[in-house]
Design a binder for these strands. Structure first.
Lengths: 235, 235
DNA sequence: CCGGAAATTAACCCGTTGGATAAATACTGT
DNA sequence: ACAGTATTTATCCAACGGGTTAATTTCCGG
């Protein structure tokens, strides 16, 4: 009877199963893209059966969309916890950059998912009702910081918050998302601790120098590490 | 005899065929990624037969690598024609940004290919002998511009040319590569003529303001359109 | 304790896809 | 001309992969 009885049958756990499926799917889609992802592989990783995916979520594309929406929800949630209102404008921008950078580092699948979705020309995102509704009041948050900075004299000129946000995301996103090819091209490991610190410093220096007019050298060394926004995990 | 004789048999054209295959492959890989690309589809688009791909290039991955190498060669070639040496440092940087931006716009497949390769963790690029040897003397070109700018007093502080190059590429790359999702999120068409002009202006303003210390507003409106670097096609 | 719904498994279906084989056709040098 | 090679076409196939069907097991309300 020792081995004979198999593994105590199985237990029911719909919610848990659903989560495990989505988690496994996120990993799979992130590493292989939409077309490269294998449904069977997701099932196995989730400790499930292929049929379960269809039972709990839907077909491959539904699954993918759900994963994508989840990813957006997660970052937006963390962003909301940033509250830049109570910081001096330059500090606020620095914190935003720091957060964005570290979020991307902590969640590499997010980068991959976005790239995958853009390869698909945002085909899935377009048909998503959820995501469209959550276009963050984040832009407003940034707009406030910028105008506040201009008034206080910290910033020299107003900047379109959308442009600024995209630029900040760009500086971090591109570096991390393309670190593999860039590392080969430039022959240096761009993901080493030192390289990452240097990059964060550079980004903050670049943006703040542009906004404040102070020398790009004024934002060196000390700044970045100090304000480490690790932001409470929002899940 | 009018229709009977078919289409005059066929003509031999190895080089032409090879080019058509690579061109078709570039388009296919760019739109569907590596896993999503279909060999048959490439063949059809090239006006060829699947067997031809294997005959002239090799299997799917070989084909992909060749396309990727070609893409790198092309941009490096155009970059070489930029000669920033004869420009005032700020002009040189502006021109570099302008060129990068317009190159990306003219060659959207390049962006997609890079993303695809990064999804694959640069697996193919690593085993490429060609690409590694051509890591542009481009970095040196930029380094020269920067140090020249510092000496002349145009720039306030020296910046690591690699960081600067990555940042410039980032500002353009991310915006264009992610325009699909960003457009959905922000609810505006980021690829309209106006939006593109605005973006170019913003990028130049941001980088030059950071480097020179002049107000971010000083680089408005007029600058960008004037120096249109369309760069002679290098193929 | 039992009947039925919910959850899970095992097995199969069938179009697709990368790749291979073999035969046909054009071209080249001699 | 003609042999030999380079190029191209026409089929074929085994594996894969998404999706489905049907049977099995757990659980919950009455």
């Amino acid at each position: 009877m020792a081995k004979a009885k198999r593994v105590l049958k199985w237990q029911r756990d719909p919610e848990g199963m659903r989560l495990r499926i989505l988690e496994a799917a996120k990993a799979e889609f992130a590493t292989h893209g939409l077309a490269g992802a294998r449904v069977d592989s997701i099932a196995k990783k989730a400790g499930a059966n292929k049929r379960m995916l269809y039972y709990h979520v839907g077909n491959k594309e539904d699954l993918y969309l759900e994963v994508l929406e989840g990813a957006y929800e997660k970052i937006r949630a963390e962003e909301r916890g940033l509250d830049l209102e109570h910081l001096e404008p330059p500090e606020a921008i620095a914190r935003l950059i720091d957060f964005t950078w570290n979020y991307f580092i902590r969640n590499p699948e997010f980068l991959a998912l976005l790239n995958t979705e853009n390869l698909a020309k945002a085909r899935h995102l377009k048909r998503s009702t959820k995501v469209k509704s959550m276009h963050s009041p984040f832009v407003e948050m940034i707009r406030t910081v910028v105008t506040r900075g201009v008034k206080s004299g910290d910033f020299r000129a107003a900047v379109d918050p959308v442009q600024l946000y995209i630029s900040i995301a760009a500086l971090a996103f591109f570096y991390l998302s393309n670190s593999a090819t860039l590392s080969v091209i430039f022959g240096r490991d761009l993901l080493s601790k030192d390289a990452r610190d240097e990059r964060l410093e550079h980004m903050i220096a670049l943006v703040l120098a542009a906004l404040t007019g102070k020398s790009i050298a004024a934002f060196g060394k000390s700044k970045a590490p100090k304000l480490q926004v690790t932001a409470q995990q929002a899940v």
